[in-house]
Design a protein around this nucleic acid. Structure first.
Lengths: 329, 329
DNA sequence: CTGAAAGCGCTTACAG
DNA sequence: CTGAAAGCGCTTACAG
């Protein structure tokens, strides 16, 4: 069943059916009603594919992320999907993992599927390789990057200012009397580097020591957090504050600290990142940097829609996080 | 740039270009190479939209879920996406929430976009309304339901046997000497009812009391779990075991119990559902029913692909969960 | 092995 | 207000 069948049954041309289906003017009331009746009778669903071919827009956007199982990305992906849905866009979800081939494959497929735009969530996508892949396959559509820093006419970067989150954390800890701070870096991206730099600068500003012991690298995760705390203990590092890593990693650190008899926050203060459910359920509850998932998700979506509708959009925008004070610091 | 441009530049017909792009036989080696060269030169990306229109298949499937922010759904959605990706299908993600209108809107849009099939994740979708909506818009494509029980030729149900998970839980608790069990029901679907029935039957089997106090209804969530524990205390209910609800709810219950001085599992044993990160990080760590997220996700995906490829697929399949023993019971 | 032609289901000027 | 016709970018018999 297609538009021709509807037209025949309603006794009009396909042009008229098209006009009715798209709520356009210039259709006699009587014909419009006849068409609507036939449409309803068959629960007719027009083919968006055929439409897309001629209007050159699919009302579909690709959302690419490392892994939606990560609660932070799930929240952003959710917000994007919901926000875009109100503007009649659908989302093709892509979990690329960190493999470059996978990422390339996905971006190519999105191009084949003629998406109207792409949103890339996570600073891992801010790489030369991604930039080149976008140039190859997606230079004709807007690409909105979350925590990205790629410079292209068609790329728009909307970031959470995580460096500022680090500054807030250090300021707060210093004000509360903590002096020997450790930065736990649980990802490896330009954002992580910027955070580390902010940490170092802040320490220098306060005249606090920044040594080889001040930074611990790991990957995010509960077990990795535990391992970090054990490693610090094994190395005999003296510290009274932890900053920089995600809630889930920070939670691992807290658990291990408590298991080894440390009191939080009396002996060691811990501040996480993301203000996720993990910071709420931790014991003691965790002070955390809220990087505004919802604001970010809505911002990414709106930026995309604005570009698509021909409005001017800044190529770089930065959203400031906020420190949510709980018990762990 | 389209297939005509490529054909012209390579000095062949569009038929030949099409054959080359689709790796089909009957192309002279020399022509094939000429075409490939032109394709590569331009990083040519053929339109999947145009292709879909003629082959009547989009290699796109709709995945509809209540809310991907829920970690359990995120895991299933992730697995589906990854599994389907290996079969060259893409996923349109839909978070419908519990609103019927929203659900209807999404299913219609999926039909418009000509998806090859739909996977619905979560027992909330097993309603008369969903069945009717599927009949209206999606009766021509396979619909795979996770934890569903709808009977249609084009609907396939793949469920985690959560009732069996309850039986495992009760068996285990009884074996360990617990006698006054409470069932916490934190969702309202046919699965929840089946779980409750299994709980009751098991208690009767063991000759244990099932009274008005044996069941507490709530919605899933940390705070709701806390509220459940408080309500039980306020009502002066004597109980030594909790069963039936999701990890996150169970975690709330455990936290509140501990805050009120109860020891887990000595005073009260708690068993959760989902074997999620929450059961791992809880203190004490939580015994939980593992309902095999990955198996489910892969099963849903394979069933869909099998139907699409004309293979026979059972209309009902049930995956048995497993009890993961930790410290809380 | 190769290409001309029809067709997928729509929208959109265009002429009336 | 209305409809015939062209066209979006592909695939697929079909004839050669």
């Amino acid at each position: 069943m297609n538009i021709y069948d509807i037209a025949k049954e309603a006794g009009v041309s396909i042009s008229t059916v098209s006009r009715v289906m798209n709520d356009r003017p210039n259709v006699a009331t009587e014909k419009r009603e006849r068409v609507l009746a036939v449409l309803k009778k068959h629960d007719y669903v027009p083919s968006a594919i055929a439409k897309s071919l001629v209007v050159k827009s699919t009302n579909t956007v690709g959302v690419v992320t490392l892994d939606v199982r990560h609660i932070h990305y799930a929240k952003i992906a959710y917000t994007i999907e919901q926000e875009l849905s109100t503007k009649d866009y659908n989302v093709i979800l892509c979990n690329t993992g960190s493999d470059k081939r996978e990422q390339e494959k996905y971006l190519r497929v999105l191009a084949e599927k003629q998406v109207d735009g792409v949103i890339m969530v996570g600073s891992i996508f801010s790489s030369t390789h991604t930039a080149e892949t976008v140039d190859r396959f997606l230079s004709h559509v807007p690409v909105i990057m979350h925590n990205g820093n790629l410079k292209r006419d068609n790329i728009y970067n909307i970031s959470s200012n995580d460096s500022y989150g680090v500054e807030l954390s250090v300021d707060y800890l210093v004000r509360r009397g903590y002096r020997q701070l450790v930065f736990v870096q649980d990802q490896e991206t330009w954002v992580a580097n910027a955070k580390l730099k902010a940490f170092r600068t802040k320490l220098e500003h306060y005249g606090l020591p920044f040594t080889g012991e001040s930074v611990v690298k790991t990957e995010n995760g509960l077990e990795n957090g535990r391992a970090v705390a054990r490693a610090l203990a094994d190395r005999g590092v003296n510290y009274d504050g932890v900053v920089g890593c995600e809630d889930i990693t920070a939670l691992g650190i807290m658990k291990e600290l408590r298991a080894s008899g440390k009191r939080i926050p009396q002996d060691v203060a811990v501040i996480g990142f993301n203000n996720s459910i993990f910071s709420e359920l931790s014991e003691p509850s965790m002070t955390s940097v809220d990087n505004k998932t919802e604001t970010i998700g809505i911002g990414l979506s709106r930026a995309l829609v604005d570009v698509l509708q021909g409005r001017d959009v800044p190529h770089e925008a930065s959203i400031f996080p906020e420190l949510i004070i709980r018990e762990s610091a």
